[in-house]
């Protein structure tokens, strides 16, 4: 599974993208967030308030209950500010 971070989340995570292999019980975005928080204190801080974070699964917006699995691309980022 590929995980991407953008804007200040990328700065917090220290990387723009990483390949991760969470355990089989991680089947939703919400479970992935909890798993990522457990392995990186900086991400635990960044993900403290998920209302501030937007999520995309395979380049479409998704909620915390959205399914994720092997081969998926999951991106985390702050609300967008283009235009």
């Amino acid at each position: 599974m590929k995980v991407l971070y953008f804007a200040w989340l990328r700065t917090k995570a220290g990387v723009g993208e990483e390949e991760v292999a969470p355990p089989a019980e991680v089947t939703t975005v919400g479970a992935l967030v909890e798993w990522l928080k457990g392995r990186d204190p900086a991400l635990a801080e960044a993900f403290a308030d998920m209302r501030l974070i937007r999520v995309a699964v395979n380049q479409d917006y998704a909620g915390l209950d959205h399914c994720v699995g092997t081969g998926d691309e999951v991106a985390f980022f702050p609300p967008v500010t283009g235009g």
Binding site: F6, A56, F77, T81, G82
Partner: peptide, 20 residues
Amino acid sequence: KTKAPFWKIEHTSAGDRWVE
């Protein structure tokens, strides 16, 4: 403005700041 995944960081005399 609310859906396209772009993010701005402003470079100012007071330093860099991500636009909210």
